[in-house]
Amino acid sequence: MQIIQPHYHAIARTAQDYERMAMSGVVAVAEPAFWAGFDRRYPETFIDYFRQISEFEPTRAAQYGIRHFCWVAVNPKEAENPGLTREVLKHFPEFLSQPTCLGVGETGLHKSTANECDALAAHVELAMQHDQLVLIHTPHLADKADGTRRVLDVLAGLNVNPERIWIDHVEEQTIRPCLDAGYWVGMTLYPVTKCSPKRAVDMIEKYGTERILVNSSADWGPSDPFTLQECILEYRRRGYSVQNAIELFHNNPCRFLGQNPKFDICPIRIESIEKELV
């Protein structure tokens, strides 16, 4: 089965992960800009990071037959430095024009401070000005519900096309308002701290598959890219067909990401071949 991993922090992972993902059917990954584990001080550090994910990482993925796409953003955890955010945002246009860059992300909120909300609004406005897709991070754990409400409030005050915005890391208490507002949502699967594969399938059974993306993110922390495949197994185990699984785990990413013409992987359908007579 062909799989697209729509949220994957490849620079934090080994080549062996690429190899195993390729062997399991992953044909493309999309890498949002991420926090480095410490707060970066200089705009140039971001620029080199954006070069890494837009120029170098596609070459590493290509060795395993995997297409690599990226997004650019100042991570919410670093948005407490408005001057730095403004400087980095000035450089976005040069990266948004790169052949594998799909849009602005992951912007969003971490502690939902005023500076974070301002940075989120600035990212989204810049994306809309350049007709880009947007990937929005929502906070973790105790900050999840309030932070997601704040994200929706910020977006409600901007002139956006909801179909071009993906609100990520939704869970049971946050998925409905995001879908009701017309946005795409992402369920991020982690071994412990975010959604689990079984809970993701529960939500899919409750809300359907329209405007839903599933990813395993996978970064330098406790995470596992194969929670995505675990979710596919859980989905299939509940009786859904391979075509159903392809719709969710391959075609839905194509539908959202494909709104940017640079993402040229098309939805696929399994076709039966009549039994050949020998």
Binding site: P191, V192, T193, S196, K198, R199, D202
Partner: peptide, 9 residues
Amino acid sequence: RHMLLELAA
């Protein structure tokens, strides 16, 4: 927390 959520689910 994770195990409790799995049980609730």
